[in-house]
Simulated scan of single mutants.
Amino acid sequence: MALEDICGFKDTPVHRKWFPASHFEDTDRSFHMTDFGLRRLKKSGRNSGIPLQFFIPTLPNSVPFNPRPSLPFSPSNHSVTVSRPFPLSHGTTTLGFIFQGGVIAAADSRASAGGLVACPAVHKITPIHSHLVVTSSGSGADCMLWERILAREIRLYQLRHRRCLSICGTAKLLSFMLHPFKGTDVCVALTLCGWDKEVGPKLIYVCSDGARLNGDIFSVGSGSPYAYGVLDRELRWSLSKEEAISLAREAVFRATHRDAYSGNKVDIFHITAQGWISNCCSLEILFLLPGCLFRHEHRGRCGILQP
């Protein structure tokens, strides 16, 4: 699709069918679900005929729920939803805030499934492009899927229009794509932390029911009440870069002590007008000696690319 625009084939039937205009730049204009994809989404249960057919899961509205199928592997019951043997609760601690030096995003790295630590080294902060990162909380599979969809759509928009989509436009696009799955088992809570050339630092929270919230500080996850306790006491606009990074690290660190579903590393990203920079401080590699505490710190990669 993007190659059609780059090569100049903008008059093709495919382009006229799916890309009549830019829908997501005007942040003040409301969207009607039938204008872009919902009308076509209802055409088929397999989502055939829309560009996201390989990425968006089908809506579970055609198959009734049967927790005890008689023959789960028979051809007639191959699509029946099977209930989980026990409920899987999950939690995390992610946060983001704006200060005079840009935007700070921080998160722990523990993936949990009930009382099980499924993985101790999960990256819950995902770079979308050079000036935008996303913190994720909720179901791990759902978050990874929608982050990939969002990164793909942003990249295609950049190829078509020769510029990055604004943070507000990105939040509107993500909210619009998630809204049809409201009321389903999709569990996604993403915080968009980025920098716009026109408006500067932006922080927008988007969840799986399609809600969008603008703010200067967000903390999401089971450890968020403990992180808010630290942030509300120490956060101020005049923080220096070092103080902001230390505050984010301290907030997630305190949450890991009280929340059983949060722990291990703390990943920190700093987003400015020049791009994002990751600073990783491992809480797992702590060497306790009599009277000493050594913490391993590692300065990560940079995301300074031309949009």
Rank of each mutant, 00 (worst) to 15 (best):
R162A: 12
D267S: 13
R110W: 03
A106V: 02
T272E: 08
K17M: 12
G300Q: 06
G275T: 09
V14L: 14
Q306F: 03
R212F: 00
D232Y: 12
L95A: 12
S79M: 08
A121P: 09
G291I: 07
V80W: 05
T126I: 11
V63T: 15
T58V: 05
H298N: 04
P225R: 05
R299H: 03
L3V: 14
P13K: 15
F218V: 14
L289F: 09
L178P: 01
T93Y: 01
T81L: 06
I98F: 02
C164L: 12
A255H: 06
K43F: 04
S109K: 06
A189I: 01
L174D: 10
I154Y: 03
L288R: 15
S30E: 13
W146F: 14
R152W: 06
P20A: 04
Y205P: 00
M144T: 05
T256H: 00
S89K: 09
G183V: 02
A105K: 03
L235H: 09
L286M: 12
G194I: 07
R40S: 07
R152V: 09
N66E: 02
L71V: 09
K42Q: 14
R152Y: 07
G138C: 03
L203C: 07
L293Q: 01
Q306E: 11
L178A: 01
G229H: 00
R40F: 05
P225G: 02
G140M: 08
Q100I: 07
E297Q: 04
K241A: 13
F19V: 12
F73Y: 11
R29F: 10
G229Y: 00
I125M: 06
C119T: 05
L288C: 05
P87N: 10
M177F: 12
S262M: 03
R249W: 03
L174R: 08
C207H: 10
A171T: 10
F99A: 00
T27E: 14
S136I: 12
L41H: 05
A244T: 00
G96C: 03
S62K: 03
E4V: 00
T93E: 01
F24Y: 11
F65M: 07
K182L: 09
P85S: 11
C164S: 14
R162D: 13
S62I: 06
R295I: 09
L156K: 10
P127R: 07
E284V: 04
G49C: 08
F97M: 04
G138W: 00
A189Y: 02
W195Q: 10
G200P: 06
R155N: 13
G115W: 01
K172S: 15
V266L: 02
C280F: 13
T126C: 11
C207M: 10
L190E: 09
E153W: 08
C302W: 11
D232W: 08
R254H: 05
Y228E: 00
R295A: 11
V80S: 02
S224V: 01
Q53W: 03
V230M: 08
I104R: 01
S175A: 15
F99R: 00
A111M: 04
I271M: 14
V80I: 08
S208W: 02
A21T: 07
H257I: 02
P127C: 13
T34W: 12
L231H: 02
T126V: 13
A260C: 14
L41Y: 01
D267N: 14
Y205W: 09
R299S: 07
I50T: 08
I271W: 06
V266N: 09
V14S: 13
L192F: 11
G183S: 04
Y261R: 10
M144S: 13
Y226A: 13
